[in-house]
Write a protein that binds this DNA or RNA. Sequence first.
DNA 1: AGTGACGCCTGGGAGC
DNA 2: TGCTCCCAGGCGTCAC
Length: 282
Amino acid sequence: MPELPEVETVRLGLHRGVAGRTVGQVTVTHPRAVRRHEAGGDDFAARLTGRTVLAARRRGKYLWLPLDSGDALTGHLGMSGQLLVVPGDSPLQKHLHVRLRFADGGRELRFVDQRTFGGLLVVPGGEPVPPLIAHIARDPLDPEFDDDAFVARLRTRRTGIKRALLDQTLVSGLGNIYADETLWRARLHGERPTDRLSRPAARRLLAHARDVLSAAVEQGGTSFDALYVSAEGVSGLFEQSLNAYGREGEPCNRCGAPIRRESFMNRSSFSCPRCQPRPRAV
DNA sequence: AGTGACGCCTGGGAGC
DNA sequence: TGCTCCCAGGCGTCAC
């Protein structure tokens, strides 16, 4: 599941692979992939054709490619989306939805997405952030992330810590995997109320989020299967560094207690029952 | 305004 | 073998 480290790995590959190049032919083979482009697939293609890609940028889990027209090709990978930079004669992927060929005839950009939660669209304004993405908070690795503001906002929330970590308007980039890893490192249960966290505890939580995200970026992200790969098709290596996520029944790497799995928001949360005790019921 | 529930999707695996 | 059911979960939308 692409979260910040995976999306950042893709962004780096896009920057290397398509920045400075001019778009040639654009083909949309699955309309759902461009459903957020309200003017439709033909307009989507027309706004890209002949434009030059200036860079590859990211805010949270969103990616965008600013164009010389002032628009930006914007995308979200959702659960299973991939943006691949591959030779034009490579085999067509089963869930290939959008193809961007370039005027130079070199490698092409492909959007592949099994579950189609992701998508692409062209929006006006790529600098500093497309308005479409303005509601997404900065991520903890962003040099302009405001630690004090985060701590203050977190403590005014009336919800559980994990819910807050997953709220992309509060802090971006964390999904289920890295939220669980952050909580394990911080020795906090995800259902601890945000408004009862001390300022130092909130700061420690943020520091752990930062540590786990930067370690995962260095490893190229987490790949459970072929669904997540970099733009060059390479798997990430962080899975072997996971301490909580997906480790139900395996011993905690700190205390040896078997990692537990709990149901949360119709999905799973993994934590150590000893290091991360459930909060007492209110 | 903040909070939380819901629906969108497909493939793989478990169970029968 | 083949069917059904369940699970993975990010995010926009909507109700309260």
